[in-house]
Amino acid sequence: MRIQGTLLWGLLAPALGLMALFYVVPLGVYFLNSFHLFRDGRIIPVWTLATYVEFFTDPFSYRIIGRSLQLAVIVTSLTILVAYPVAYALHTRVARPGVRAALALLLFSPLMVSVVVRTYGWLILLANQGLVNTLLRAARVIETPLTLLFNMPGVVISLTHIFLPFAIFPMYSVMGKLDLTLKEAARDLGAGWWDTFTHITLPLTMPGVVAAALICFTLSLSAFVTPQLLGGGRVQVLPLAVYNSTVEINWPAGAVAGLVLLVLSILAVRALNAVIRRLPGV
């Protein structure tokens, strides 16, 4: 036991060391800073709740929080809506393992491109004279170009795109564990495709959906580069507020906004975990 214990800690040490050095310590510094004061371009190391009071009494803070939650909810919903059918198709329609592996690689390929490069790609695609608008106009879907840049739709499109693999794979893996004879049993008992889907497949794959939602929600909430570059300053979310404050050396304000972001993420994780635990058949 003793040797095992030593070995265990030895194996855990690198990860724990990294976590302590780059997560716990900065978080502590952050936490301490949130109780300091920023006045006239300087941090005053006094102990006060003034920065919190400022944050929570400023209506602008609530707009930012609202925007962040709105973005996270929209992106999460859209991602799930797009990803679920993909996972379902991958699960039910692709039988050959080789094809499956190739499709999986394709789905993961957006992650191989740096976020900055990808975002500039979107800038080109979504511009007024960009590919999306050109195609839509050529197809006579629209007359005047849609404004897809430096606003919410642009950010939503880009985030949904990049979060797709994070949503597809949890759902796909849960679908893989679904006993296919349950679907046959439902068919046998008179259920058509839709009833089988809504009564059997969907409820039994909900754990995958919730897991995917959890990932997408927390990732959207903390997304920074995309809202920064594609939002054009019009999509004010918490990570941007943190960044802006930090750039202005206003660490206390940045710390407060950052902690609010952390609390929101924790609440989201807890809420969705509670949902998972209450799911039927788990």
Binding site: D179, L182, A186, D188, L189, I200, L204, G281
Partner: peptide, 30 residues
């Protein structure tokens, strides 16, 4: 004709009871 439109019902080898339903809801499904 698909199974849902045949005058047959099946008892499956591994039973294939719906794990997320109660006994009542399983029997009531059809």
């Amino acid at each position: 004709t698909p199974p849902n439109r045949r005058p047959t019902n099946m008892v499956f080898q591994r039973l294939a009871l719906f794990p997320h339903y109660t006994v009542f809801e399983n029997v009531a499904f059809g």
